Lab assay of single mutants.
Amino acid sequence: GSLMYASIFGNVSAIIQRLYSGTARYHTQMLRVREFIRFHQIPNPLRQRLEEYFQHAWSYTNGIDMNAVLKGFPECLQADICLHLNRSLLQHCKPFRGATKGCLRALAMKFKTTHAPPGDTLVHAGDLLTALYFISRGSIEILRGDVVVAILGKNDIFGEPLNLYARPGKSNGDVRALTYCDLHKIHRDDLLEVLDMYPEFSDHFWSSLEITFNLRDTNMIPGSPGSTELEGGFSRQRKRKLSFRRRTDKDTEQPGEVSALGPGRAGAGPSSRGRPGGPWGESPSSGPSSPESSEDEGPGRSSSPLRLVPFSSPRPPGEPPGGEPLMEDCEKSSDTCNPLSGAFSGVSNIFSFWGDSRGRQYQELPRCPAPTPSLLNIPLSSPGRRPRGDVESRLDALQRQLNRLETRLSADMATVLQLLQRQMTLVPPAYSAVTTPGPGPTSTSPLLPVSPLPTLTLDSLSQVSQFMACEELPPGAPELPQEGPTRRLSLPGQLGALTSQPLHRHGSDPGS
C-alpha cells in the first residue's frame, strides 16, 4: 500500500510541476520586462504597450523563439521550412505564380514574418522605404497627419515599386495596425538579389506586381527641396563636378596662354591676372594647382613670374625650331616645348642647366612650328573623362623618358669634360720664339709635331656638333674642335714665318 501511495504521489506532483513550468517561465520573463521598464524609466503609455505586446506574443508563440529554433537546422532544411511557412503567400499572390521551385525557395529564405499588435506603428512618415510588405492577416491604416487616407487588409501590398527607383524613397505617411496583424516583408536588397539570379522571372514579377498603396513621397523628385535634403551631399558634389568641367572646357578654348597655377587659371584673360583667384576666387580649394602655386600668395601677385606667355621676339635665322618633346602628345598638341628640351639645344645650356634650372624654367623657349593648343594648358582630366590607368601609364612613360634624357646628358657632359682635359694635357705650358741651342744640326726643328685630335665617332658628340652648327654659343662658352686643319689655341699665330727665318745662335768662333 505504501508503494502504491508513493507512486501516485510522485506522478501527481510531476504533472503539477509540468503544468506550472510554463507559468514560471512566463513570470520570469515578465519580471525581466518590468525590470527593464523600471531601469530605463519608460513612461506609462509606452510601458503599457510593452506589457501588452509581451503578453500577446507569449500567448501567440508560447514563449518560443522561432528564429532561434529555425537557425538550429541546416540551410537546406531551413529553405523547406521557410517554404512551408510562406506557402499561403507564395501560392495566392499573383506576382509569385509561375516561378520555379528554386526561385520560390530563394524568396522564402528572404521573407521575414512580423507580428504587430493593435496601435503599433510599422512605418513612420519620413522613414526610408527599405522593404516591401505583404499583409497575411489583420488590417492596417495609413495616416497623413491625423487623416486616415487608406485601410488595407489581407493580401494587400504596400511599399514602393523598387524597379522604378535606384534609391529608396521616404514614406509619405504613417502605417498603423488596427488589429493583430501578420506581415511578410522582404528587404529591398534581398528581393533585387533574387531577381538578379532569376532574370526570366524578374520581368514577370515586375509586370504582375500591383502595389495597393504606394508609400513613396511624390514630392521626392529631382530638383525638389525634399530631394535635395535626401541627396544633399551627392547633389552638391555633382554640381561641383559639372562646374569644374564647364570651366576646364572654357580653358581649352584659349591656347595662347600657358599658366603654371593649374587648370583653373589657364583660361583667365590678361585683365584677371591681378585678381586673387581668377574664376576660382569664390572657392580657392575647388581646383588643383601645381607646386608653384604656393608662391602666388606673396605680395606682387600681378607681377609674379609664374604666369607664362609666349615671347614675341624673333628667332635667329640659324636657330632650330626646338628640341624633341618629352611626351608623344607634344608633337601634336603643344605650341611651347618643355623646359628640359631647351637644355639640349647647345653645349652652353648643358654647362648651365643644373646651376640655374629654376631660373631657366621661365626663360624664352623655342617654339614648335605648329600653332596647336598648349601642352601645359590642357586641363586636368576628371576620373569620369580619362581612366586612372591611362594617366598612370603616361606618367610612367614620361618618367622613363626623363631617365633616358638624364643618362644621355650625363654621358655627353662626361665626354666633353674628358676631351677638354685631354686638350689641356697635350698642350705645353708655354712657348717662346727663341729656342735653346741643340747639340747638333738636327735641332733646327722649332717644335715637335703635334698629332691632331682623333675624329669623334660617338653619337652623342655628333649631336653636340649638330647643335653647335645651329645654335649661337654665348661669349663665355668653350669652343669644341671642328672639322678641318686643327691648330692649338695656345700656339702663336705666325708659326709659318718662324720656319722661314734663320735661327740666331749665340757662340764663340775658336779662330777669332
Score class of each variant (00 low, 15 high):
352 S>A: 08
139 S>R: 11
425 T>G: 08
359 G>W: 15
427 V>D: 05
351 F>D: 01
427 V>P: 03
438 G>V: 12
504 H>I: 13
321 P>I: 15
273 R>T: 04
361 Q>H: 13
394 R>E: 04
252 T>M: 07
245 R>P: 14
363 Q>S: 12
434 V>N: 15
209 L>D: 01
420 L>I: 08
507 G>H: 08
416 V>T: 01
437 P>E: 10
155 N>I: 02
411 A>D: 12
223 G>D: 12
249 D>Y: 08
238 R>V: 11
199 P>H: 05
406 E>L: 07
433 A>Q: 15
394 R>Q: 11
408 R>V: 10
137 R>Y: 09
395 L>S: 05
502 P>Q: 12
279 P>N: 12
134 F>A: 02
396 D>E: 10
328 E>R: 14
350 I>M: 06
461 L>E: 15
431 Y>S: 13
220 M>C: 12
162 L>D: 03
270 P>Q: 15
385 R>T: 12
172 N>I: 13
262 G>Q: 14
228 T>F: 10
439 P>C: 15
153 G>K: 08
158 F>H: 01
433 A>I: 09
196 D>A: 10
132 L>S: 02
462 S>L: 11
140 I>L: 10
293 S>W: 12
219 N>D: 14
181 C>P: 02
236 R>I: 13
188 R>M: 10
399 Q>G: 06
494 Q>A: 10
448 L>G: 09
128 L>Y: 10
471 E>I: 08
235 S>P: 10
361 Q>P: 10
302 S>F: 13
466 Q>K: 11
448 L>C: 02
208 S>W: 04
219 N>P: 15
340 L>M: 10
329 D>T: 10
469 A>Y: 15
449 P>V: 09
238 R>C: 15
324 E>D: 08
439 P>F: 15
367 R>H: 12
408 R>F: 05
403 N>P: 03
215 L>Q: 01
189 D>C: 14
237 Q>K: 11
156 D>V: 02
261 L>T: 10
128 L>K: 10
482 Q>Y: 06
248 T>N: 11
362 Y>C: 10
140 I>R: 01
401 Q>F: 13
413 M>L: 13
226 G>P: 09
316 P>Y: 05
266 A>K: 09
213 F>V: 07
138 G>L: 02
361 Q>F: 12
298 G>Q: 04
262 G>I: 12
311 F>Y: 11
150 A>W: 01
204 H>S: 14
165 Y>W: 13
141 E>G: 08
404 R>W: 05
494 Q>E: 05
202 S>D: 07
232 G>I: 08
183 L>D: 01
376 L>I: 08
362 Y>D: 12
319 E>G: 08
146 D>Y: 03
446 P>H: 08
326 L>H: 14
218 T>Y: 12
134 F>S: 02
167 R>D: 06
356 D>V: 10
304 S>E: 06
180 Y>P: 07
475 P>S: 11
444 T>W: 06
332 K>M: 10
298 G>F: 04
304 S>F: 06
382 S>E: 09
241 K>F: 07
336 T>I: 11
168 P>M: 05
260 A>W: 13
467 F>R: 08
243 S>I: 11
137 R>G: 10
290 S>C: 15
477 A>T: 08
353 F>R: 12
465 S>K: 08
444 T>Q: 04
453 L>M: 15
